[in-house]
Computed example of a mutant assay.
Amino acid sequence: MKKQELIHLHGLLAEVRKHHQARTGTAVEYEGYESLGVRPTSIHKSKTDHKEAVFALAEGITGEMRRAESETVPAAAD
């Protein structure tokens, strides 16, 4: 994947994060992503930096969705 494509994906994931937060009404912390200091607008950062940020952001989003789903779906009775 080219750097420009990674930056675009990074921007899309940032929008998904923002949409999820607005939909759930909670501000979710993504410590792994935040600690990188790489934003979609950080075009001066390396391709590797954006790739790491994309993976961290995707992991944070999916983890939050899993957590939210486990809170709304009742556990199966034995």
Results as ranks from 00 to 15, higher is better:
Glu31Thr: 02
His50Ser: 05
Gln21Asp: 14
Ile7Trp: 03
Ile61Gly: 02
His19Glu: 13
Gly37Arg: 07
Thr26Gly: 01
Glu15Arg: 14
Asp49Ala: 11
Pro40Trp: 09
Asp78Lys: 07
Ala56Lys: 04
Ala27Trp: 12
Ser42Lys: 08
Val38Glu: 07
Lys51Glu: 02
His8Ala: 06
Pro40Arg: 02
Gly32Lys: 01
Thr62Ala: 15
Lys18Arg: 14
His8Gly: 04
Arg66Thr: 13
Gly32Ser: 01
Thr62Arg: 14
Tyr33Trp: 00
Lys18Trp: 10
Leu12Pro: 01
Ser42Asp: 15
Leu36Arg: 02
Ile61Cys: 02
Pro40Asn: 07
Leu9Ser: 05
Ser35Asn: 08
His10Val: 11
Glu64His: 09
Ser70Ala: 13
Glu69Ala: 14
Glu34Lys: 04
Pro74Glu: 11
Glu34Gly: 03
Leu6Asp: 04
Ile43Ser: 15
Val16Gly: 01
Ser35Thr: 10
Glu31Arg: 00
Ile61Met: 05
His44Cys: 06
Glu59Ser: 01
Gly11Gln: 04
Lys47Glu: 09
Thr24Phe: 15
Tyr30Thr: 01
Asp49His: 06
Ile43Leu: 13
Ala77Met: 03
Ser46Ile: 11
Gly11Ile: 09
Lys45Val: 10
Ser42Glu: 12
His44Gln: 10
Val38Ala: 05
Phe55Tyr: 01
Thr48Tyr: 10
Thr26Tyr: 03
Arg67Thr: 07
